[in-house]
Every structure is written in structure tokens, then in C-alpha cells.
Amino acid sequence: MSAQATAALPADPAVAPAAEDELLAHFDALVAGGGTVEPRDWMPDGYRRMLVRQIAQHAHSEIIGMQPEGGWLTRAPSLHRKSVLIAKVQDEAGHGLYLYSAAETLGADRADLLEALHRGQQRASATFNHPALTWADTGAIAWLTDGAAVINQAPLCRTSYGPYARAMRRVCQEEAFHVRQGYDLMRALCEGTPEQKEMAQDAVDRWWLPAVALMFGPPDTEAGGADARTAALGAAVSRRAMAWGIKRHTNDELRQRFVDQCVPQAERLGLTLPDPAIRWNEERGHYDFTPVGWDTYREALGDDTHWARQRIERRRAAHEDGTWVREAAAAYAAREDADAARQRTEEPA
């Protein structure tokens, strides 16, 4: 915890209980009224913990999410697509940086968070435990998983924690752009040779489930596919996050929104989404689809597979290979600071 974060908590434990009630009441009223919590404001520990966990997981997902597409940078089939893909992967690095910065305003330290990721104590989105096997995968990832990310994250632009909301506004704007690029890439393939179209369909067949299941989290309603007990449990977590203004919709609501968006887009592309249950439900005004139950969710996770290990391994190798560089930069900065300080004392004002 940084000095800043500690200072934001009640200073004297002896007077804390009474003061804390008052602070909590003020905090609850602020959040209920749609107000924004800023780093120096008092906040409940649970709120801080939930945010650090969520923001760190998101930051890790951006960094790990660079890998499946990053592997295709050297093979992009046109210079235009190569430029677009470099820009996208670059955006993801930028998102990681904004988000780690947002987490740092809560007293977390980026180095510690990365360490937790490398040790497997914190996770990135399991979506990226899936492999990008062909060029079309870069399009399917951008169209489907970035598309899911936008739906998931757009409400976070109004989340209660100020630095997170501000980071998300920028992130979402860029993600929306990635979705368009992904769709455009898929369209080019679908309008190309039969082999190209086949490659596009194969990529969608493999990326649909990771997008629809993993990008939205486990089912948290009975209608969404959870049994009564887990639905209640999921709903309780979602409710807590929603009361704090960290989350604004249930996972299953957002999932439905995603399906409703994708089905017509897939139709226009001439691609088939790999779910035979997808059909328009006039009564509900939504597309029906196979509910993402816990079994499906667990199966899609791909924990501890070859690719899941590979993602973390690459991340760890980059970090370890770069240790001497970071040490050099730190030593250089310290020396510069010391030189500047010495100069100040040698030159009296």
C-alpha cells in the first residue's frame, strides 16, 4: 500500500468505528447518487479490493491478449493489414498501461501485480487461453472478443471509481475501432477465395465460445444457465458490485446483448455462428441461444492447457529477459537524480 492509499483510510483505529460509520454512509450516498469516487476519498476496504482485483485482471488481459494477435504481426498478408494489426496490438499495450496506472491509484504496485500474474496468483481473461491458429483468427478475435469487450466495458465508462471510468472511456473508444477492423478483415476473407472463406468460418467456429462464455464471466442468473444455488451466489457477487457502482449489469444481461449484436453481423458476413439454438424470439425481442451453463463455462476456460501455459511462459520470459534492461534504467535514473541533487547543493540559491 502506498502512503497515499494509507492516508485515505481512517488514521486512528481508536476513533475509527464511529467515524467509519459516518464515512460509509457518506460513501454509500455518493455512489447511490451516481457520484464519482476519487483516489484520495475514503472507501470501504472491500470496494478497494474488488476494484484492484477487477482492474488488475483487466490490465493482465490486455497484456496477455497481445500475444495471440502479436504472433501474426510478422505474417500479416498485406501491408495495410500489418499496419492495422500493429496499431491494434500497440493500443492493447496502452490499455494495459492505463489500467495498471488506475490500479496504482488504489495503492497497488504494477510490479507486484505483474509478479502475481507470473506466479499464477492473478489471472488474465481465459479467452486468451485459446490459440490463434490462422490469420483469420486475428479477425475473429477483433470482431468477437473485442466486440464482447466493448459490450462488457462500455458501462464501465460510468463506473463509480473515477480513474477507472476515465481509463475505460479511452479503452472503449479504441476497442470499438478494433471491432470494426476485425469485422472488415472478416468481410475481406468472406468475399475472397473459397479457401479464405473457409478459414474465416473455421476461426469463428473456434472463437465463438471463448467470446460468448468467457468474456462475460460465469452465468449469474438462472435464466442464463446457472442452477439456483450458483445463480444466487453469482447474483450476490454481481449485486454487491452493482451496489458499489463497479458493475452495472449482470453477466447474462451483457451476454444477451452481445448475441443480439453478433447474429445479424454474422448473417451479413455469410458466416454461421456455431450454436444451432440461435434463433430470433419475437416474444422476448432477443435472439435465443444455448445458455452458457457452468459446465460449458468450465470447459471453455482451457485452464492449464498447452496454450494457457504458453501465454504465461512467454510473459514471464519477456520479463526475465528484460530484467537487466530495467535494472539499467533504474540505476541510470538513480544516478541522474543523485547528480541533480548534488548540483543543487553545490550551487547555493
Binding site: 462500455a154 473508444q173 468481410r187 453481423q265
Partner: peptide, 25 residues
């Protein structure tokens, strides 16, 4: 840059990609 409301609208209206092939680059 855009504000949150615009982003949320933009997210749902991705189909615009049909008529435009802008790139980030």
C-alpha cells in the same frame, strides 16, 4: 476521445463497419 454515452452507442452500432473501412493507421 469520446464520452461514455457516445462509446456505449458506438458499441452497439458496430455494424457501421459495413459501410466504412477506416483503419487505425
Amino acid at each position: 476521445r469520446a464520452d461514455a454515452a457516445v462509446v456505449e452507442t458506438a458499441a452497439v452500432a458496430v455494424a457501421v463497419a459495413e459501410t466504412a473501412t477506416e483503419t487505425a493507421t
